[in-house]
Amino acid sequence: MTTWITICDTCKRDDWDARALGVTDGEVFADLIEAAAMGTAGVRTRRHSCLMGCARGCNVAIQGANKLNYTVGEFEPSQEAAEAVVGYAALHAISESGQVPYKQWPQAIKGHFVTRHPPLPTDE
């Protein structure tokens, strides 16, 4: 089953203005995650403008149908962080419930979990 990585492409870390990048930290992080996810089985990416976690940018949602879903944030837009997000998403994709044992988490994602959402009900 597919796990989606939804990347906030409007995130700006606190020092963004001083760094004058010309692009948002979210765009930089999205580029890195998309590259890291290329060819990863069961993982797809998409960008979304504003996940409303501005105090914790850079933010990403890890989601799959009928699974626990997660928001992770407060990342530096780095290769290591992007690979950790993709690595966790790949484990989420193969998990029946979406829950991944802590000992399997990539080190660089630990401490970045913001929220966990239960799956939506399937009955009307």
Rank of each mutant, 00 (worst) to 15 (best):
I5F: 00
H92I: 03
A108L: 12
R19N: 12
A30L: 07
Q107T: 15
G26V: 01
R46D: 00
M1E: 10
M38K: 15
P101S: 07
W105M: 14
A84W: 03
D25Y: 08
S95E: 01
Q104D: 14
A81D: 12
A82N: 06
A93Y: 05
M38F: 15
I109H: 00
K110Y: 10
S49K: 13
R19M: 10
A81P: 05
L21S: 09
D25P: 09
I5E: 02
P77C: 00
T3S: 09
R44C: 05
M1N: 10
L68C: 12
W4D: 00
N59W: 00
G26F: 01
A55W: 14
E34P: 11
Q63F: 05
I5Q: 02
D9T: 09
A90C: 08
C58H: 08
S49M: 12
S78F: 06
T3F: 02
I94G: 07
A81E: 13
A61Y: 05
P101D: 04
N66W: 09
Q63R: 10
V100Q: 04
P77R: 03
H92Y: 04
A36Y: 05
D17G: 14
A61D: 03
G87V: 04
I94V: 10
A41I: 09
I5P: 00
C8W: 02
L32C: 07
A41E: 11
Y88E: 05
T122I: 11
A30F: 04
E27Y: 08
E124K: 15
K12M: 12
A61Q: 06
L91A: 08
C8Q: 03
W16D: 08
D123E: 13
T2S: 10
Q107P: 15
E96P: 10
Q104A: 15
A81W: 03
M52N: 14
E96K: 13
A90D: 03
M1W: 07
I7M: 07
G87T: 01
V86E: 01
I94T: 10
T40S: 14
L91M: 09
Q63E: 02
A81I: 05
R116T: 12
G39W: 00
R47A: 00
F75A: 02
A35F: 08
Y70D: 03
A65H: 08
D9N: 13
V43E: 02
D17E: 14
G26E: 05
C54Q: 06
A37W: 00
P121R: 08
P121A: 07
V72L: 15
K12C: 13
A41D: 14
S95Y: 05
V28Y: 07
T3H: 00
H117A: 13
K12L: 11
I109D: 06
L91D: 06
V28E: 09
M38C: 14
V100P: 04
